[in-house]
């Protein structure tokens, strides 16, 4: 681990100033925020991240979860994943988000992990974590060792010849399906980013996971008014029953009209691309249709159009196709009860 300075930020302005101050002696990008620390500290221990300074966000008053005037919900960036998942308003209005969070990591990690940090967690590509191997995401231009190597966890959609990594978050898959909005703040002011525009595909700059600027702070994640609470499902397929990242995951949400037809559909995939994978065309396939497997399969085909495996991970394509159908089926039958009981915290 590289020696680093530590600053406990008082408020957002202080946190932002601390990215370069005092006296601007730290170049932009050389400091990192510290939230739950469940990712950044691991990366530092393995020398993947070497910030000169850690700016601790844990004192910021950004841990609240509150209703918006529009009828949505505002999740503080510093609210813990566990507190978010078990929040009564999240559970009742956005059970999809609750289920997705609880499908991730372990109770201990969820108790520490923050919502902002979850969006910014880095890929789990083995090579990214091993400084003994070249990796374009870790050191741009050095090459992608995963290509032709161990690619079981890697992307089947949207990859490039420079990087085939996946975004590992579960929470983000639900946020993508729920069309969340990310609130950002910097010295230049505040702005909002639609979730679909937040994460990005690797292209030839895989070092950038998202479209945030280096001098920005996530303050909140906004959920628009809920429409799909009664018919949603998060299905995560993984190597063991807990504490492992998704091979494939699906966030499915439906709103059914009185005749049982699909009034609105949302569908996002995790574990398959550099960002949560969503295609409005796939959802359009379902619009106005009865909630039946044949239509689910048609939507799956559109969502997975262009999917390509690396050999070892080819299985993800049929797995994803089946998972989409299953998740839509479960959602259509009605949101399942909580996956995890409160006592398990």
């Amino acid at each position: 681990m590289t020696p680093f300075a530590y600053h406990l930020a008082r408020d957002p302005a202080d946190a932002l100033a601390a990215l370069t101050a005092p006296g601007g002696n730290i170049p932009l990008g050389a400091a990192s925020f510290l939230a739950g620390g469940t990712n950044i500290l691991d990366l530092m221990k393995e020398n993947v991240a070497r910030p000169m300074r850690l700016v601790d966000l844990n004192q910021l008053a950004l841990a609240r979860i509150e209703e918006t005037p529009a009828g949505g919900l505002l999740l503080g960036a510093l609210a813990r994943n566990a507190d978010t998942a078990y929040h009564p308003l999240v559970r009742s209005r956005y059970p999809l988000l609750s289920a997705a969070i609880l499908a991730g990591a372990s109770p201990q990690i969820r108790n520490m992990a923050s919502n902002g940090g979850n969006l910014l967690q880095r890929t789990r590509c083995y090579y990214f974590y091993d400084t003994g191997t070249p990796c374009n995401k870790r050191s741009p231009g050095s090459g992608c060792t995963a290509l032709g190597g161990l690619t079981r966890l890697h992307a089947i959609l949207g990859a490039s010849e420079h990087c085939i990594a996946t975004h590992p978050s579960d929470m983000c898959v639900a946020l993508a399906a729920l069309e969340a909005v990310v609130h950002l703040r910097s010295a230049r002011g505040e702005r909002q980013l639609a979730f679909a525009d937040f994460h990005r595909l690797p292209g030839d700059t895989p070092q950038h996971d998202n479209t945030m600027a280096a001098d920005e702070l996530i303050t909140h994640i906004e959920l628009p008014p809920a429409r799909h609470a009664a018919h949603s499902a998060y299905l995560k397929l993984r190597d063991r029953a807990s504490y492992s990242f998704a091979l494939v995951s699906v966030a499915a949400a439906l709103a059914l009209d009185e005749g049982g037809r699909i009034a609105s559909a949302r569908l996002a995939l995790g574990g398959v691309a550099h960002k949560p994978w969503r295609q409005p065309e796939a959802e359009a396939v379902l619009q106005g249709k009865p909630a039946e497997p044949a239509h689910f399969a048609a939507a799956a085909a559109v969502l997975l159009a262009g999917a390509r495996g690396e050999g070892v991970n080819d299985f993800k394509i049929p797995m994803a196709r089946r998972a989409i159908v299953r998740a839509l089926e479960v959602a259509a039958a009605g949101t399942p009860g909580p996956a995890c009981r409160e006592e398990e915290r």
Partner: peptide, 25 residues
């Protein structure tokens, strides 16, 4: 444990990626 034979190196060298059975299993 998965080796990348081009590198002659074990790659999933941590307990997040080297999977052992957990309580839920």
């Amino acid at each position: 444990t998965h080796a990348d034979h081009r590198l002659g190196r074990f790659m999933n060298h941590n307990l997040a990626e080297y999977h052992v059975t957990v309580n839920a299993d």
